[in-house]
């Protein structure tokens, strides 16, 4: 089972990296960008039937730092009849 873990900074936590990227976008002439937050995407391939609790535990214990980050678990649909 493919699972994507989206790790993002909590609202209110200053994101210097996002700010630098924002400035760079403006420097390239991309106006109208209100805000940029940089996060991390972690793709897991886990055993079928891995419970949500288990995935939560992985996130809380290692993949995200709960002091500064939030996470969202996205289970990927199985690819249909791939040849």
């Amino acid at each position: 089972m493919k699972v994507r873990i989206h790790v993002s900074l909590k609202p209110g936590v200053l994101d210097p990296q996002g700010r630098a990227v924002h400035h760079a976008l403006e420097g390239l002439g991309f106006g109208g960008v209100e805000d940029v937050r940089v996060g991390r995407l972690i793709e897991l391939d886990v055993a079928e039937g891995t419970s949500d609790e288990r995935l939560d535990e992985m996130c809380r214990k290692l993949l995200a730092n709960m002091v500064i980050e939030n996470y969202r678990i996205e289970k990927m649909p199985e690819t249909q009849g791939a040849a």
């Binding site: 936590v13 200053l14 210097p16 990296q17 630098a20 730092n65 002091v67 500064i68």
Partner: peptide, 17 residues
């Protein structure tokens, strides 16, 4: 120490980058 939970808080990228 922060990551292990022995101390509270977290150390993030310097504000200046």
């Amino acid at each position: 120490l922060c990551e292990s939970g022995l101390l509270p808080g977290a150390l993030m990228r310097n504000a200046s980058q």
